[in-house]
């Protein structure tokens, strides 16, 4: 589903590479944590998958597409196959919960009928049924993140990228979000989540990819946050 083949990324010539010769393969339906401290290359990793950046060397394949060769006008089609969730939610403050989720479908040209059908379904799935008409500031952080997840997933993309989705949430709320992501993963969606949250990683016991200074230092099935000596 996602494959990085000896990928390096250098932002400014001469500087230390943000990613250095990284090779990773993520299968369809995987749940993968991407861990590492700030500046380890996590964000670059995600940006390469979203084709916000191009690799300096190596090849990136996502959802059957070779991103190195993807022309810029086809990038939107790639992004429709990747849902993205961020630490800061990125909701539109003047739109209601329903409108925020519907917006994602509107702007890719879905019909009114599809929107009417999919949006309530999705809000039901993320546990926000009954709060359709609330504005983001009337919701708790956890609820806002649920809206963001609903928006990212309403188009049923095969891949969900989460960049520190629990970074702004307290541990109790985070557990709820993780349950939701787990449910989404069980529908066959590939979930790749960058995080600092060791508790969550330790609890979930999923595959862990760890980056350090741009190098891949660990790729472990059913791993924990800290480096385990096996």
């Amino acid at each position: 589903m996602i494959r990085l083949d000896t990928v390096s990324k250098v932002y400014t010539r001469g500087a230390r590479p943000a990613l250095d010769n990284v090779s990773v393969e993520i299968e369809r339906g995987d749940f993968v944590f991407l861990v590492g401290s700030s500046g380890s290359g996590k964000s670059t990793f995600l940006k390469l998958i979203l084709r916000e950046e191009r690799p300096t060397a190596g090849d990136v394949y996502v959802a059957g597409r070779h991103l190195n060769r993807l022309s810029s006008w086809r990038v939107p089609h790639l992004r429709r196959e990747i849902g993205a969730v961020f630490q800061d939610f990125r909701l539109l403050p003047n739109k209601t919960v329903y409108q925020n989720v519907a917006f994602a479908l509107q702007v890719i040209g879905k019909s009114k009928r599809e929107i009417h059908q999919n949006v309530p379904e999705m809000l039901e799935l993320v546990g926000l049924a009954g709060k359709e008409r609330r504005l983001p500031h009337e919701l708790s952080g956890g609820e806002q993140q649920r809206v963001a997840i609903a928006r990212a997933f309403v188009n049923h993309p095969p891949i969900l990228l989460c960049d520190e989705p629990t970074g702004n949430l307290d541990p109790g709320t985070s557990v709820g979000i993780m349950r939701l992501l787990d449910r989404i993963n069980r529908t066959g969606t590939t979930v790749l989540m960058a995080t600092h949250d060791d508790e969550i990683v330790d609890q979930m016991r999923k595959r862990v990819i760890e980056l350090k200074g741009g190098h891949l230092v660990r790729d472990q099935d059913r791993g924990v946050y800290g480096l385990e000596t096996v």
């Binding site: 992004r79 928006r151 188009n155």
Partner: peptide, 8 residues
């Protein structure tokens, strides 16, 4: 957001 969700 439009960019993110893949609008043209």
């Amino acid at each position: 957001i439009m960019r993110m969700v893949g609008s043209s």
